[in-house]
C-alpha cells in the first residue's frame, strides 16, 4: 500500500511550526538516529526498489485474482456480478473516477484556508 514518493525536500513550512518535530532535514533514512527502533527493520518498505516495484506487485496480484474467476464460479445475486473480473473492473473504474473527480470538485469547492474568518485563529 505504501508506494512512496521521493523523500525529497524538507518542507520549510513544517520547520517553522512550534511542534516537537526536529528541524534537521532528513538524512538517508537508514542512518537516522531518531528512527524508532521498531521501525528500523521495516525501512526497506520505503526503499527505491520497493517503491518502484510496488505497482507491479499489486498488478500481478490483481491479475491473479482475476484469473481465479476462471477457475471458480462466483455465485452472485445479479448476472453481471458473475462476469469474470467484474469486481476488478468496477473497483478500478470506481477508484479512478473518485480520484479524478477530485480535480473539478476542488475547483468548485476549494477555498483558501482562511476562507471563514474565524478559522484564521485556528493556528
Amino acid at each position: 500500500m505504501s508506494a512512496a514518493k521521493t523523500p525529497s525536500k524538507s518542507s520549510a513550512k513544517s520547520s517553522a511550526r512550534k511542534t516537537p518535530a526536529k528541524k534537521a532535514p532528513p538524512r538517508k533514512p537508514a542512518h537516522d538516529e531518531d528512527i524508532h527502533p521498531v521501525a528500523r527493520p521495516f525501512l526497506w518498505l520505503v526503499s527505491d526498489k520497493v517503491r518502484k516495484g510496488f505497482i507491479y506487485l499489486v498488478g500481478i496480484a490483481m491479475v491473479l485474482s482475476i484469473g481465479a474467476d476462471f477457475l471458480i464460479h462466483r455465485h452472485g445475486h445479479f448476472d453481471f456480478e458473475t462476469t469474470p473480473g467484474f469486481f476488478a473492473f468496477f473497483g478500478f473504474a470506481a477508484f479512478a473516477f473518485v480520484v479524478l473527480m477530485g480535480w473539478p470538485l476542488r475547483r468548485l469547492t476549494g477555498r483558501s484556508e482562511d476562507y471563514y474568518p474565524e478559522s484564521t485563529e485556528d493556528d
Binding site: S65, A68, R74, G76, F87, A88, F95
Partner: peptide
C-alpha cells in the same frame, strides 16, 4: 475472490 479483486484493482489504480 470478489472482494480481493475490488481491493487490489483499486490499489492498483492508486499506484
Amino acid at each position: 475472490v470478489g472482494q480481493m479483486q475490488l481491493l487490489l484493482a483499486a490499489i492498483f489504480a492508486f499506484a
